[in-house]
Design a protein around this nucleic acid. Structure first.
Length: 175
DNA sequence: CAATAGATCATCT
DNA sequence: GATGATCTATTGC
């Protein structure tokens, strides 16, 4: 969970589209009842127990998928949910994928939205994010920003744990 | 503007 | 068979 804030400001790249990570949420497992991994290893959650740096993509509510990054070494459950992205490259492509988004801030400001904008699907389940096709890059010049912490959103159990990190003042953070 | 319902299916009980 | 780490459209003040 220590690495969750480090992901802020990094860039997620997939093909011609890229976006800066502005909002994340940490999920631990074990004691974290809200995490998918808390009920032990299953066919769906087995990547979370694997080595860090891999993608955990899951399908939810029949129409949306969410992108996670495994954050703990093999054997230890832990992942980081990417909640919001600031679109950088391939804006036209992203706009085409999400016709409903009128403003740029709406292209990827939400877990389900960013996967649509970046065309991420369950096909990328278990992908190595250091080798592609999806990669996470570090910026040379990271603009200065403040990291804010708050409670998590969209869950019932342990919803008040302070595990949600985002860039303070960013217009691209979800509501 | 705030609240709520509906869409829709993989995964787990 | 129930439920969910969501988003959008619609209804109600």
């Amino acid at each position: 969970m220590e690495v969750a804030p480090d992901l802020l400001g990094k860039v997620l790249v997939h093909g011609k589209t890229a976006g800066r990570i502005v909002e994340v949420e940490a999920y631990l497992g074990e004691d974290d009842k809200a995490a998918h991994a808390s009920r032990g290893v299953t066919e769906r959650t087995r990547v979370i127990f694997g080595p860090a740096g891999h993608a955990y993509v899951y399908f939810i509510y029949g129409m949306y998928e969410c992108l996670n990054i495994v954050a703990e070494p093999e054997g230890v459950p832990g992942c980081v949910l990417i909640r919001a992205l600031e679109p950088l490259c391939g804006l036209e492509t992203m706009r085409r994928r999400r016709p409903k988004a009128r403003r740029i801030e709406e292209l990827a400001s939400g877990p389900g939205r960013l996967t649509q904008a970046m065309a991420i699907t369950r096909r990328h389940y278990g992908c190595d994010l250091t080798r592609g096709p999806i990669t996470v890059r570090e910026l040379e010049e990271e603009p200065a920003f403040e990291i804010a912490v708050s409670s998590r959103v969209g869950i019932r159990e342990c919803a008040d744990w302070p595990l949600r990190f985002y860039i303070a003042g960013s217009r691209f953070v979800s509501r």
